[in-house]
Simulated assay, not measured.
Amino acid sequence: GQRWLTPPRSAIAMSLLLRPESLSEAGAGALAVVGALAVAEALENRGVRAWVKWPNDVILPEGKVAGVLVETEWLGEHLEHAILGIGINVRPRSAPRENLDFPATCVEQSVGGRVDRIDLLLAVLGRLEAWLGQLGSRDLMRAWEARLAYLGQHVTVFGPGVEMTGRLAGVTPKGQLRLALPSGETLTVGAGGLSLRPIDTSGKWATLSTAAPEGRGKASGRTRR
């Protein structure tokens, strides 16, 4: 697996054990969305505009500031528990600088000053509590798509043995990506083991612009060899 190294007192790194009374597989798939939204909204309350990069990152114009991971344990169709892991780069030394396929940044760099980690943690937990009661709701979907990075732009979705390029058309309630292909077909892509990058990386890393980059009018899909 992957390794994450966090210098002491430089970031927020937490795991929450959730035991929902009733949660479908679709609802469990949205837990990462809830975590990312909670972080984005907590940052926005501090004057930092943030976006959610599918499937589980929070990004600022300068790069990635937070990541969310979910592990679930099922007994048949019953969810025994879920572990929601959230990591937020707060201090500059928490943002790695080397061996990255996507640039990293931190909260303090964006706000231009000191940030109290406990205050930020409490803000994230407050937004989590608000959204956990709305799993599967239209309000959750609207809030997610309102902060979905690269919506309407051409992106590359890649992972082990696969690479697809198309226009990011939105997301599904299960947390899947909707990728519009040049054939007119819209492909639904699950999050397992996949990452996303914008095709045009000449500007800032986070934008809500729906204008396709010039010269990128066609999308394609191919398998890596």
Rank of each mutant, 00 (worst) to 15 (best):
R3V: 15
S24Y: 01
V52I: 13
A130T: 05
V107N: 06
V70R: 10
E108Q: 14
L151H: 12
C106T: 02
G221Y: 04
L196M: 15
R9T: 02
N99T: 02
L196Q: 04
T210C: 01
R91V: 01
E21W: 08
V107D: 10
S209K: 05
M164G: 01
R224L: 15
T72R: 15
G166M: 10
R147C: 06
V33T: 15
G85D: 06
G47V: 07
L120G: 03
E98I: 01
F158R: 08
E71V: 02
K64P: 14
T207N: 09
A104H: 06
E163V: 08
G76F: 10
R216F: 10
S202K: 05
K64H: 09
E77H: 13
W54M: 08
R114D: 11
L125S: 09
E80I: 15
S15M: 06
G170F: 08
L60M: 07
I118V: 14
V171L: 07
C106I: 07
P61N: 04
R197H: 10
A32G: 15
I88F: 01
E41G: 03
V58S: 06
T172K: 07
R93H: 07
N99D: 15
A149N: 14
G203C: 02
N56L: 08
P213M: 08
G29T: 11
F102K: 02
F158V: 00
Q109M: 04
R224S: 13
V70E: 03
S183Q: 05
H78I: 12
P55N: 02
I199K: 10
V90N: 02
E214R: 11
H78K: 15
V70A: 01
S15F: 02
D116T: 00
A26H: 01
V58I: 11
P20N: 11
A191T: 06
T156I: 12
H78W: 03
K174W: 01
E80K: 10
G161R: 07
K218C: 02
K53F: 04
P55M: 04
L43S: 05
V58N: 03
P20H: 10
E163P: 00
V39A: 07
E41K: 12
V162E: 14
I199P: 00
E73C: 06
Q176A: 15
V48G: 06
A66M: 08
G126C: 05
A211D: 13
G192N: 12
A104N: 03
L100T: 03
A66L: 03
R97G: 07
G184P: 14
G27Y: 04
I199T: 03
R142W: 14
L16S: 01
L196D: 06
C106K: 02
W205S: 02
P96T: 07
V90D: 08
L84E: 09
R224H: 04
L23G: 00
G152P: 13
I199N: 14
T6K: 07
R225I: 04
P8L: 13
R167G: 03
L17C: 10
L17T: 12
